[in-house]
């Protein structure tokens, strides 16, 4: 169930749970900070790659993965601050038009890990508009549970690339930390995709 906070905005963990529910072969990359805790709260699995760093790189990591595995859906879930740092990657993704890549920005309009300073989206910067202008035709802003369910269906339909700016409540939630040893995080995802030969490549 997708929850709406007192602010009238969507509750982030319920958003991420809904996007990852019954995910099948979907591979998920969680951007540095709260989105990494959110995908972990939804259930840590080898198909998740939560990031502890590389700010600004999550969307393009998703692109490299989507190009390498064109039959598997790839979902990047990241924050507004992380996306803004790598905003040029919207152009890079648009030039490749990967059908299996979706980028979902959980937009709380703040840098949550560093003391809730305002991001550019707090001042009206329209990330979905930037993505659309870059050439990601299916770029949308999501503010209601119904819109989120429609996004979920679109991601599963595989007619990407898809970009979504999901307006979420700004509350900081209890940390749900994934493993911190990043060699394990990459090796487990590779093994989930490639089987034991992942380690003999």
């Amino acid at each position: 169930m997708i929850e709406v906070a007192e602010s009238g905005k969507l509750e982030r963990r319920s958003v991420v749970r809904a996007l990852l529910e019954d995910r099948g072969e979907m591979l998920a990359i969680g951007g540095l900070g709260a989105p990494a805790w959110d995908i972990t709260a939804a259930g840590d699995t080898p198909q998740n790659l939560p990031l502890w760093g590389g700010m600004g790189g999550a969307a393009v990591m998703g692109l490299g993965l989507a190009l390498a595995q064109p039959t598997k859906p790839v979902l990047v879930i990241t924050g507004d601050g992380e996306m803004l740092m790598g905003v040029g990657s919207l152009a890079t993704i648009a030039t490749k038009q990967p059908r299996n890549l979706s980028v979902v920005v959980l937009d709380n309009e703040h840098y949550g890990e560093t003391g809730m300073q305002e991001t550019a989206t707090r001042h009206g910067v329209d990330l979905a508009g930037m993505a659309k202008a870059a050439g990601i035709v299916d770029s949308r802003k999501v503010t209601t549970p119904a819109e989120l369910l429609a996004l979920r269906d679109a991601i599963r339909a595989g007619h990407g690339p898809i970009f979504a700016q999901v307006k979420i409540d700004a509350a900081s939630l209890p940390l749900v930390l994934p493993p911190r040893e990043a060699s394990i995080l990459q090796a487990r995802m590779r093994e989930a995709i490639l089987g034991p030969k992942a380690h003999l490549q």
């Binding site: 590389g54 990591m61 692109l63 490299g64 390498a68 990459q186 590779r190 490639l194």
Partner: peptide
């Protein structure tokens, strides 16, 4: 970042 993503996918 792209080289890393490609490696994740083999």
């Amino acid at each position: 970042a792209l080289v890393f993503g490609a490696w994740l996918g083999g």
